[in-house]
Nucleic acid binder design. Sequence first.
DNA 1: GGCCAGGCCCCAG
DNA 2: CTGGGGCATGGC
Length: 248
Amino acid sequence: MEQVDLQATLMGGQCFAWEEKDGVYSAVLKGKQVSLSCAEDIQGPFLSDYFDMSFDYKAAREYLATLSPVLDQAVTTCPGLHILRQDPYLVTINFLLSQNNNIKRIKALYDTLCRSYGTEVSTGRFSFPTRDQLSKATEKELLSLKFGYRSGYIVSVVREYGRLGGLEKLSTAKARERLMTLRGIGPKVADCILVFGYHRWDAFPMDTWMRKVMCSYFPNKDGSYFAPYQALAQQYLFQSAQSGRLVC
DNA sequence: GGCCAGGCCCCAG
DNA sequence: CTGGGGCATGGC
């Protein structure tokens, strides 16, 4: 039975909603609070979909392991890493927050958005603001909440989001192109939205960590080397580098 | 103080 | 198309 690694999957930089306390992971999803203390708690249609339980991760890991010792090591150490199926709008706003930033502070900003514009679903627990709720935020307000130069991007993307339309039907390359027409979404953020919001495994986000990894371990190669599992390879390599398990 | 963090925009060449 | 400066903020 496939065991999801909650730590790696929920706290590894795919999403910023979860907090871990005494081994219990909790978040507000779809307006409801969810708490998980082990992989067996992943039950029901919503969580099964969220954790992408129907995909054959074993086959993907076995293939990636053949590509390089670094990946072999990574998948062996952490067999339970899944790519979540998250809401595209939420992912879009989240990765606007991510640019030139670190995971800890991205989480803090995520929390600020929830508390400032979301709905309190239980005492002290807030949902992520809907598009409608977030549309009430002004740039000035966001600046005072320490969103920095991302403030303008958030206001603009919330306003223009409807323009994206049925991205699901487009090829990854076309969808990427359309995402990048929004202000504040460049190549890297677009790729993150494609992987984490649209589950496009042929996207390969290249951030500062990945640049180092590719330079050190896969010189003269790009994401296509890991096809058809680019996104999973990326997530393994990102986490390995970012947690200091790789020397770059 | 300088450098860096899941970068992007804008402007030179 | 490529390179580099500017941009907000906080941790180290």
